[in-house]
Design a protein around this nucleic acid. Structure first.
Lengths: 209, 209, 209, 209
DNA sequence: CATGAATGAGTGTTCATTCAT
DNA sequence: TATGAATGAACACTCATTCAT
């Protein structure tokens, strides 16, 4: 009877080790040897579970997205509209250690993506699903009358995505200056513009003159 | 009779070549040999003008910042307040090819920074000056009464910085989906929140009920 | 109750798989894993039937020789002299797909043999038996008066062996230029020199002047 | 003033070392490290003079052909016809240490060629020139009346090529049994068949009955 | 000053072999 | 017996760096 290992469990072990190495050393210094060492295996063993380094890295990035999205789904199960939106965006922002790590992983892949067609394709495939995560609660909220009826959903979703990416890189590069509190203030600033459409604001401003 | 070379000119030539290589090949494939080849020199000559590869890369990043800042200064010489602010932020956003290139360079360095204390230090040193570029016209505009008197300058400056970084990465990763027009709409969305402080908005909203 | 496996059958299965892999991938790309996969077994099982990779390869080469010799024996059972000789040499030449394969296997081992004492010893042990396959029908034919009485059997046998090896490599490297027809013409050229000894030819030539 | 090395001389040094390693270890055990060590350089230096290992090996094979052909040209400068033919074929046969080495190199490449399209193409390109080396003196000799007027030059040239390859592999695998004397006897056997065409032999044979 | 030859460590990857199950 | 997980060395290749010229 041969030794049977849980394939997926091993893969997850290796990917977890990959994350730790990326977070500690940076993606450029993330080598197969270091990953294997971090996971407690010999370098050759990775060949059993991944076709090559690219596979490991792509899987690590996918795992990053998957984890975030799983948490979003989990925490928004019984929420709708603005409540759901807030949870979604809060899961995407680097507000605690776990999400700091995820933000660091993601950012490490950005520059890699530029010269790597395979990673570029993966990132492009992920674009719409991520946007959907924002679009869906936005649509709900608008339907519920929680947001301005003039709100451009596409623009709002992109604004959230830009905020998420901007805060991620600033948190990672300047952690002490990009506290969770600051991030939430920035988020509030943006969300408040959704409340009241631009035209309406202009109208009110004119009236108040 | 020793040949006298223009030290700074040589350095700038090399750094320009470095940019071209980074833009074409990505930072990971940017080698000393390729930089030297691009600049038309032999690999060994770089040792005369830079202490090592790290020095070249750091200098290239500094040059990126310097260029942006020089253009900001040039174009805001005769402007103040909101007009200056707009020029400053537009120089920082990837709205044309030149700034696309600069955004690409910058982003290439982000992941490098994580595992590289020297680069990290450099980035930290750059933090305040960049923020100052936003603070200064904001303060002017506020003093001129162009912005809400309640506006938190620090928060506004950071919000601009976050927007700049967020739009930079999205432009680089998804250029066709992050057009100059979209960027300017996002910028307007943010700037409009500066016009009218949050409390005021709330007040108005309450009044209109 | 332990499972009883047919040892020799398993070995033959593995060796057949080895041939297929060598023919498809070349000896250099012939790995234990690929052989095991081709045979439908796990990599580790080969250790039960062979001491190591070298053993597998040596056995595969032996099988190549054995097959040729078995066919020779089978087809020459009721033949003697020149008739037997022709069958023997035709079995050894790459005149059809099966023998093309065998020639390819053999040639793959040639270069391996040079740096591999074990294979070298095996090839040396095979030298005399192969030569015997030619010697025996040659002796018969000479005794039957089918060949020149001056014929040096040793030289003739070696000439056949050289022809066989030369045609094998040319067939494998340049198949379209080394057709079965060409091979048979070359064979006839050689066999005709056996018919009439050299001295006799010279004599005739002198007489005809 | 930089250190200037003779590029071609270095390449030849490396190729000579490559030959020695191939002859000693076999092509499969011929690694870049071993070649570099044999040449007295560090492994990395080979990258200066060759694009990759394939380049080294292809060049080594080409050098093998070039050397043989150069010697042929040199030694046949003042010879024509049968005299030239004999020199040509003797330069191609492994009759001394130098040509033993060349034969060993050539044979090592045979099996490699099978799974290597680049080498295969090189071998195919070499086919006709090699054949020409035999064709040319054969045509001369025929024109001079030194060979049978019925001789098929194409067939004769191929027969010489087959003999050369066959004797090469036998010399390399069984050096003690494939002495220069034996090789020359085999060569004479073949050359004599060129003297007197097949039809003539048959005619004479019939007449003598 | 400038060259480019040379170094040697480090990369991803492959693979024969071992061995606990 | 049979499995396939695991090892660790070897591979070709890349590259920052050094240094004699």
């Amino acid at each position: 009877m041969p030794k049977i290992v849980d394939w997926d469990k091993r893969r997850d072990e290796v990917l977890a080790a990959t994350w730790r190495v990326i977070a500690r050393e940076g993606l450029q210094r993330t080598t197969i040897r270091r990953i294997a060492g971090e996971a407690g295996y010999s370098p050759g063993v990775l060949a059993h579970y991944f076709t090559n380094k690219q596979d490991i890295l792509s899987s690590a990035l996918m795992l990053c997205h998957t984890r975030v999205r799983d948490r979003m789904r989990e925490r928004t199960k019984s929420l709708i509209g603005l409540d759901a939106l807030r949870v979604v965006i809060e899961e995407a922002l680097p507000l605690d250690e776990e999400r700091d790590l995820e933000a660091g992983i993601e950012i490490n892949f950005w520059s890699q993506t530029l010269g790597n067609p395979e990673l570029a394709k993966l990132q492009h495939n992920e674009f719409e699903p991520i946007l959907d995560d924002f679009r869906h609660p936005l649509l709900e909220a608008k339907a519920l009358g929680q947001l301005s009826s003039d709100l451009d959903i596409e623009e709002a979703a992109r604004a959230l995505m830009v905020l998420m990416d901007g805060l991620s890189i600033e948190r990672v590069l300047f952690p002490s200056r990009t506290t969770p509190e600051l991030q939430l203030r920035m988020l509030d600033l943006l969300l408040r513009t959704f409340d009241r459409g631009l035209e309406e604001q202009v109208t009110v401003a004119v009236e108040s003159e």
